[in-house]
Design a protein around this nucleic acid. Structure first.
Lengths: 120, 120
DNA sequence: AAGATACATAACGTGGCCTTTATGAAAGAG
DNA sequence: CTCTTTCATAAAGGCCACGTTATGTATCTT
């Protein structure tokens, strides 16, 4: 399936309005929370090496228990860093590279925003 | 003072060995932890707007208490996202854009690493 | 030196992350 | 239908992040 994300980067030449920028903070915080853990970074690293991997395989390779793997996988899904799909009784997971790229782009825009006029 | 950090990026053409990559995970986790909080992201956003800002100014603008600001500032320094310097009895803080860029580059390399030979 | 200003730190409580052990749900095998 | 496999979820404990209030430290002013 994968209904191809609608608009990765809408064409805007100026900065985002503050309301949208504020909403982006929450999304970005959730995204960074997904990466703010060594175990999850190792999962991400493994999923970067192999295109797609079974949950138990990653857990076995990294030496972590199965519930722990499932826990971190849930956070990674919440952060839109990893997507999963069922294949029979297995669950295959892979990096959501588009979403990762989108989050980085949003963060990059946040870093580039400049106060056009700061009266105070 | 500021004894200028010795070597920001040693010249390497291939991917990092696994041992170093493992060490980089801890660094990256600390870096992402610095960004994994809406309050700190707001601080970062503010410091992106103004080149340099006084601690109390940012705290007042964002409506957070002074110890809370100091707390987050410590985490941001630990993550090498923000640097601070004294100016009289004030403390001015600014983004460490070089370090931020370096961390992103390291994460980008982590995403691009491919298992050269996977006999599985 | 005494007071005011700007930050940092200590102490404390709350909440959530992280982990393990135990249990439940879904899909295939026999 | 029963059993096994694969993964998710619940419950419980440990630990740390996060927040406020109070106090300490450094710098400037008078």
């Amino acid at each position: 399936m994968s209904p191809r994300t609608p608009d990765p980067s809408p064409p805007h030449r100026r900065v985002l309005p503050l309301a949208i920028a504020g909403a982006a903070e929450g999304d970005l915080a959730a995204y960074f929370e997904g990466l703010a853990n060594p175990t999850r970074l190792r999962i991400v690293q493994r999923l970067a090496e192999v295109k797609e991997a079974r949950v138990s395989d990653v857990a076995l390779l990294l030496g972590i228990s199965q519930p722990r793997m499932s826990w971190h996988l849930r956070l990674l899904r919440r952060a839109r860093i990893v997507t999963t799909r069922r294949y029979g009784r297995e669950v295959l997971c892979r990096l959501d590279r588009d979403s990762i790229q989108a989050s980085f782009t949003r963060f990059s825009h946040l870093l580039e925003e400049q106060s056009e006029a700061e009266p105070d």
